[in-house]
Amino acid sequence: MPATLLPDTITSIGLLAGCLSFVSAVSGQLTRAAVMIGVSIACDIADGFVARSAHSASQFGVEYDSLSDVVAFGAAPAILAYAWALAPLQLWASLVVGAFVICAALRLARFNIQTETPGGRKHFVGLPVPGAAAMIAGGFLGGSYFRFDSPRALSAAITALMLTLAALMVSRVPYPSIKEIDPASLKSRSAIALTVIAIGLFVALPQLTALLAATGYLLSGPLWLAFGKDIKRAR
């Protein structure tokens, strides 16, 4: 069996989940659409983890992963946002959704170039597209948790969020690279404890935890940009 078969299969599952997400959004099943984006994010993390663990990373895998991400983290969350909050804006909604998808594609193209640059993957330059997708899915789940129900305010808030995410994706703001986590480091007791706590929170309060996790990662880039030099000096 080719060494790249397993990570590429995981990528395919993530792509399928992305397709199921926008089909669910079009059908009005928005919670399922948000959950499928979460499945795609899990697959995106897992395929890279498996490829590094098995030393089976390939250029084909990088390109296939990016094509999958355009669907799962570009089109799927954009359609979710449209069905959830932007549809009343009509033409303006199309422009907002289009800006998000275009910036996601530009972000992925830049990432592919950076993977060929020495040291280009120590951190992400710009908000990763899975992070942007997580913010939209987490925002929907959090909104349903708090039972937020004000259509006009919701449309305005999601418009601002979508444009902010689009700008961050093509920005130079640094973000932590989850893909660079050493698999061996996950065997430590602290890593295992944090994993157990995270799983427990997702089981107990999945909607709220998804919102807080997505918001935390979204803010990590600007915070790193603001305080990164001081952190390095302290170290």
Score class of each variant (00 low, 15 high):
residue 91 L to A: 15
residue 92 W to I: 15
residue 93 A to Q: 04
residue 93 A to R: 01
residue 94 S to F: 14
residue 98 G to F: 12
residue 100 F to H: 03
residue 101 V to K: 06
residue 102 I to Q: 09
residue 102 I to D: 09
residue 102 I to R: 09
residue 102 I to A: 15
residue 103 C to R: 06
residue 104 A to Y: 08
residue 105 A to I: 11
residue 106 L to T: 09
residue 107 R to A: 07
residue 109 A to S: 13
residue 109 A to F: 05
residue 109 A to W: 02
residue 111 F to Q: 12
residue 111 F to R: 10
residue 111 F to D: 10
residue 112 N to T: 11
residue 112 N to A: 12
residue 112 N to L: 10
residue 113 I to P: 01
residue 114 Q to G: 08
residue 114 Q to W: 09
residue 115 T to Y: 09
residue 116 E to Q: 14
residue 117 T to H: 11
residue 119 G to M: 09
residue 120 G to W: 05
residue 120 G to P: 04
residue 121 R to A: 14
residue 121 R to S: 15
residue 124 F to W: 04
residue 125 V to E: 11
residue 125 V to K: 11
residue 125 V to Q: 11
residue 127 L to I: 12
residue 130 P to W: 05
residue 130 P to F: 05
residue 134 A to Y: 08
residue 135 M to E: 06
residue 137 A to P: 10
residue 138 G to Q: 06
residue 138 G to E: 06
residue 141 L to Y: 02
residue 141 L to I: 07
residue 141 L to N: 03
residue 143 G to D: 04
residue 143 G to H: 02
residue 144 S to M: 13
residue 145 Y to D: 13
residue 145 Y to M: 14
residue 146 F to A: 14
residue 148 F to T: 12
residue 149 D to H: 12
residue 149 D to V: 12
residue 150 S to M: 08
residue 150 S to L: 09
residue 150 S to C: 08
residue 153 A to F: 00
residue 153 A to Y: 00
residue 153 A to P: 01
residue 153 A to I: 02
residue 153 A to E: 04
residue 155 S to F: 01
residue 156 A to V: 03
residue 156 A to T: 02
residue 158 I to A: 02
residue 158 I to L: 00
residue 160 A to N: 01
residue 160 A to I: 05
residue 161 L to S: 03
residue 161 L to C: 10
residue 162 M to S: 04
residue 162 M to P: 00
residue 163 L to D: 02
residue 164 T to G: 07
residue 165 L to K: 01
residue 165 L to A: 05
residue 165 L to Q: 01
residue 167 A to D: 07
residue 167 A to P: 06
residue 167 A to S: 12
residue 168 L to G: 02
residue 169 M to W: 02
residue 170 V to L: 03
residue 171 S to F: 02
residue 171 S to L: 03
residue 172 R to N: 08
residue 174 P to H: 03
residue 176 P to S: 08
residue 177 S to N: 13
residue 177 S to D: 11
residue 177 S to V: 08
residue 177 S to F: 07
residue 179 K to R: 15
residue 182 D to E: 13
residue 182 D to V: 10
residue 182 D to N: 13
residue 183 P to H: 10
residue 184 A to P: 05
residue 184 A to I: 09
residue 184 A to K: 10
residue 186 L to W: 09
residue 187 K to N: 09
residue 188 S to G: 14
residue 188 S to L: 09
residue 188 S to C: 09
residue 189 R to E: 13
residue 192 I to K: 13
residue 194 L to V: 14
residue 194 L to N: 11
residue 195 T to K: 07
residue 195 T to P: 04
residue 197 I to N: 08
residue 203 V to I: 15
residue 203 V to D: 05
residue 203 V to P: 03
